[in-house]
Design a protein around this nucleic acid. Structure first.
Lengths: 335, 335
DNA sequence: CTGAAAGCGCTTACAG
DNA sequence: CTGAAAGCGCTTACAG
């Protein structure tokens, strides 16, 4: 392995001078610099970043916590984060927590020992309380938070209330009055948004119209939808707080002989790639995941480099409704 | 930040002794060790891994190259690799190449400067020639390789020829004689396997029965399937070299009024989670991705720690056919 | 079993 | 503009 010292000898200078031409922070006579650069090329020198890290106390490395990387949601965030990091010369230490607190603690300790320059935590609401984040020796930014947003850290997330509102507004505009919701308990905010849209027209969405899925899969959606569609009063529309449930709901509707969107409208949430393939194609609320990831790292990097003001902010990105084929006017006889 | 020196002073020893009790590689008198451990706890000392790395030349870090992390295939590999790494106390530096050679080169240089202990390259066949892997200062292991498997590195991959064979054997057992293939050019081996199964019964699958998809999506599959299903002789079965194409093929069959599996059998490849949701549910070749990832890192780690013999091996994991609803006996009139 | 010394490869003031 | 010195926090032989 060729070191800075080797380059220095070859160029007939000391290693401090080599360091200076590399960093560019100190003026070096052009002729000397050229000699140094030539030596670097000839020797194929590449700086040892761990030595540099020890000297500077900065590792050019940031950690990213995500619950998982399976599924379009977090996968896209990871890629976006990596892109931004790469643009700035940083590397990504990926930690998937799998919702396992012990594992996350262990990972957190590892990142600390490794002196990461910053940490981004995406959507691990269940874990955050277990992490000794307060003792972190580096900036922390949160993203993809929905409920229980901590106030001690900058957060970049989605306006989930508005997401639900958009779904509700759309259904109201189509004339629907009786809506049922298929939800996960953690998606309370999205349901609140839907309720607000209906409330604007004086229609209440009772708790009895909210059905919890017992597993976050199409199967869970099938069961919840079956319950919802056979309850009284019969809903003419369904909002699911994430797409997987909507997939199951489509099946349930088919099984019950209710055609979509003629007899029943369905709105999903997340707009995952697969929902474009369903029959009928699913109307869904799209959330700007990539933008969210990008903003979050950029904020983190700003803190890391201290070039920006370290304001503790909450940033909400706006979702957007993508209307496809699974929603239509309320059936006339259902008024 | 508390250092080893601080611990030493607190315990009334020198830092070398602290180092000894932490590493456990040198005997320390129990009483002394206890004092040191107490000091560590009281001070909340945690070793600085970058300093250790500089001293030892090892970073307890491995790099992983994947083309992308979107899609079940690589996502699962990433998670499995991270799991194994974590079990062994290593951290994961993730690099998604996005099939961009320039980007990959840059990433590779970064990993080198960062002194990773090893590198795992998953499925980036197009990039490998562009990487100065030969100059790598660390062990390299390849996984998920299909064609053009380099001989200079250990490889852990799937027996893709067998995957195609399993699909072919299944279709033959159902009596199909006229099969069409929807493929990507890089999946030649899978097609070879299918051909072998048909050849066993004296049936040739001509090149004219192989249709290339021009994009790796259901849309691409739709177009290719439409071409295949309207060509003469009419195929009674379709094999797609990856599931996304099969999704499009199902649509195409529907559009052409051919019911699956009564008029047409379809076999996919990869057995991605979403294919369980199609109607009819897709028969597909399942490949042990997680096991592949696990074996590959374990092999890499063995090389890194030099505890195993550094044999250059090619390891092939066996795929498995998952029969669902999209395949059935050849229609009687098509014999 | 414990301490004194040197070194890993770099950077950062500080003199000249 | 360039060189000599010290130091980042650890580990590794090597004496005692």
């Amino acid at each position: 392995m060729v070191t800075m010292q080797d380059v220095a000898e070859r160029a007939g200078v000391t290693k401090q001078t080599v360091s200076n031409v590399i960093s560019g922070r100190v003026q070096v006579r052009p002729a000397t610099a050229a000699r140094v650069r030539a030596a670097i090329d000839e020797l194929g020198y590449t700086p040892n970043l761990v030595a540099r890290s020890l000297a500077t106390g900065t590792t050019m490395t940031v950690g990213l916590f995500v619950p998982t990387v399976s599924g379009a949601f977090y996968a896209e965030i990871v890629e976006e984060v990596e892109d931004v990091l790469q643009e700035h010369g940083y590397h990504l230490l990926l930690c998937t927590t799998r919702l396992d607190g012990e594992r996350a603690r262990h990972q957190f300790a590892g990142l600390t020992s490794r002196n990461v320059d910053g940490l981004l935590v995406a959507g691990d609401r269940d874990l955050i309380d277990h992490l000794p984040l307060l003792e972190a020796r580096f900036p922390v930014v949160l993203c993809a938070w929905e409920t229980g947003v901590p106030e001690s850290y900058p957060v970049v997330t989605i306006d989930y209330e508005r997401a639900g509102y958009l779904a509700g507004r759309h259904l109201r505009d189509l004339g629907h009055e009786r809506v049922a919701v298929l939800a996960s308990p953690v998606h309370r905010i999205r349901v609140d948004g839907l309720r607000r849209a209906f409330a604007e027209d004086g229609i209440e969405v009772p708790d009895s119209a909210v059905f919890m899925a017992d597993e976050p899969t199409p199967r869970g959606g099938f069961a919840a939808a079956t319950a919802a569609l056979t309850a009284e009063p019969r809903p003419t529309a369904l909002f699911t707080t994430y797409d997987a449930l909507a997939l199951g709901a489509l099946e349930a509707a088919r099984a019950l002989g209710r055609s979509v969107p003629e007899d029943l409208s369905i709105v999903g949430h997340d707009d995952n790639p697969e929902v474009r393939l369903t029959r009928p194609a699913l109307t869904s609320v799209s959330i700007p995941k990539r933008e969210m990831g990008r903003q979050a790292v950029e904020l983190l990097l700003r803190e890391v480099t201290k070039s920006g003001t370290p304001v503790n902010s909450l940033q909400l990105l706006r979702p957007r409704l993508i209307v496809r084929e699974s929603t239509g006017p309320v059936p006339p006889h259902a008024g």
